[in-house]
Design a protein around this nucleic acid. Structure first.
Length: 493
RNA sequence: GGUCACGUGGCCGAGUGGCUAGGCAGAGGUCUGCAAAACCUCGUACAGCGGUUCGACUCCGCUCGUGACCUCCA
């Protein structure tokens, strides 16, 4: 059998809507850019899903041997509070409400975002650029677009000429939109009088005196347009044509469509080779979104302190829950599903523990290489984590059976299973035990082991009353004892 | 209104033109002093109506239902 990492990796390119073999422009290097959060409020669980999806991609690419440069931005300026171009900057508005400096708001929610990423075991990117840190580059790109004839200046603002661009270039290719249909469905928004066409979008916006975040530019005081930062920062760090650009489905239009247009206008060619979009997390069938008011923060999730939550859920339970669904499908949140994932994860983690001290036999009853191959096949098929997890549970069954003496694996077989399970569960899925093994846990384990010995002695003299009393009282403290052939183990309730 | 998805057993969710997804829950069994865990077995699902086909849950059409995007949104 060939080495798994030499097998082709197929990815659905949302630009072509087809599964394509992924081949980086300059192997073994891969450039990956993902649209990060806007740091003016807490991230909610839907955001976490997207970042988990791309964490899985990053982990998989790394696992199969690619050297990935992963760039994920922080949007700390530029998005408006509503669909009115004259509206306040979201961050500026939030700052006034909270009487904070804009950059203080940015820092607060950036810190919070990082805490959440750590909580869900989402690996940090290699570069995490901020929009405010790349104003010079953004102005330079605006100028290149003006020079190319697709940007025009009105009253200190610069707009992108979409109909002009669309005459000779594909606009709407990514999102499957046609320019005439877009024009027919345009909403009548304010601030339109400056634009030549309602489809045009801002590259640079003039700042009103009320604005707190603004910078001098060749066109006057202002701030960069909504879509510019990603174009600038992705190409700055990954090159003017890079491998993978990811983000949530809801960014496809107009955000990513505009990015494509900007890059073509400024640099003469499309910026991205493979586009990848993660689907939405829904609640009762509806997209979780700030505007829907159906979102909850990771903190509410863990404490269970929210009307939609029956109880609190651990971050690893949630991560596992998300990975049991393919990234391109919508995933509906429900308490029932979360509880099912919680139980499943417990069983998986219990098996991972047992795996550490399986006893080897003289033969191999199971073909671990075949299991491994199925895991790699699943992941190489458009990151099919649900199928890979199904195979991992086949591994769980094998572990338990070997542990029960119902199946036999050789030393080599056990080693192979160990490597496979650790790679899939820890490295690729990024799952770990909900509770860390800390020093205090070691003390706890020592104490419980003492009680287990006392109970074993009681049982040896068939004093089941004392034995059961020990077990029941420990159970009352949340310590569950389990008798096995090899002896008694314990876990927390 | 336009565009695009989706509708799978009690729940969540894969997948496929003919052959077991998997998890959780449920039933029976093995093991056990009891319990828990573990293991084995089980339900014979694919919105509805037509069509293509030797054969469709899987392909095509229509109907119904749900959702996403079209505006900031992961």
């Amino acid at each position: 059998m060939s080495e798994p990492r030499e097998l082709p990796f197929y990815l659905t390119n949302t630009l072509t809507r087809r599964k394509e073999e992924f081949v980086p422009a300059e192997p073994p290097h891969v450039g990956l850019y993902v649209c990060g959060p806007t740091v003016y409020s807490d991230v909610h669980l839907g955001n976490v899903r997207t970042f988990t999806t791309f964490d899985l991609l990053y982990r998989w690419l790394t696992h199969i041997g690619y050297k990935v440069r992963y760039v994920r931005n922080i949007t700390d300026v530029g998005h408006l509070v509503d669909d009115v171009d004259e509206g306040e900057d979201k961050i500026a508005k939030r700052a006034r409400l909270e009487k904070l400096e804009p950059m203080e708001v940015v820092q607060k929610y950036t810190n919070g975002f990082h805490d959440v990423m750590r909580l869900f075991n989402i690996l940090p990117p290699n570069i995490e650029p901020t929009a405010t840190g790349h104003l010079i580059e953004q102005m330079a790109m605006v100028q290149r677009i003006i020079d190319s004839g697709f940007g025009y200046v009105v009253n200190g603002s610069v707009y992108f000429d979409v109909p002009g661009f669309a005459k000779d270039h594909a606009y709407g290719e990514l999102s499957g939109r046609r320019i005439d249909e877009l024009l027919a469905n345009t909403r009548d928004t304010e601030g339109m009088e400056e634009k030549r066409s309602p489809l045009d979008f801002a590259l640079w916006k003039r700042a009103e005196p009320i604005h707190l975040m603004k910078w001098p530019s060749p066109w006057g005081e202002g701030f960069p347009g909504w879509h510019l930062e990603c174009s600038v920062m992705s190409t700055k760090y990954l090159g003017r044509t890079f491998d993978i650009h990811g983000g949530g489905m809801d960014l496809k239009f107009p955000h990513h469509e505009c990015e494509i247009a900007q890059s073509i206008a400024a640099d003469g060619h499309a910026p991205v080779r493979y586009w990848m979009h993660g689907n939405m997390l829904t609640v009762n069938g509806r997209k979780m979104a700030k505007s829907e008011g159906n979102g909850f923060t990771p903190e509410e999730l863990i404490t269970g302190n929210h009307k939609l939550l029956d109880t609190g859920y651990g971050p690893m339970t949630v991560r596992f829950f998300m990975l049991q669904c393919h990234y391109a499908s919508t995933l509906d949140f429900s308490n029932e599903a979360l509880q099912a994932s919680e139980r499943g994860l417990e069983r998986l983690m219990a098996a991972m523990d047992k795996l550490e001290d399986l006893k080897a036999g003289a033969r191999d009853d199971v073909d671990i290489a075949a299991l491994e191959q199925r895991c790699y096949d699943a992941m190489n098929d458009d990151l099919n984590s649900p199928v890979m997890i199904a195979e991992v549970f086949e591994g769980v069954r094998i572990i338990n059976s070997v542990n029960d003496g119902k199946l036999v694996l050789s030393t080599a077989g056990i080693d192979q299973l160990r490597r496979l399970m650790r790679a899939m569960v820890h490295d690729v899925l990024g799952l770990k035990a909900e509770r860390d093994t800390s020093d205090s846990d070691k003390v706890m384990d020592g104490l419980v082991q003492e009680f287990i010995r006392m109970r074993a002695e009681a049982k040896a003299r068939r004093d089941f009353a004392v034995g059961d009393a020990i077990r029941d009282r420990l159970a009352g403290l949340g310590i569950l004892l389990k008798d096995t052939k090899e002896g008694t183990t314990w876990e927390r309730a």
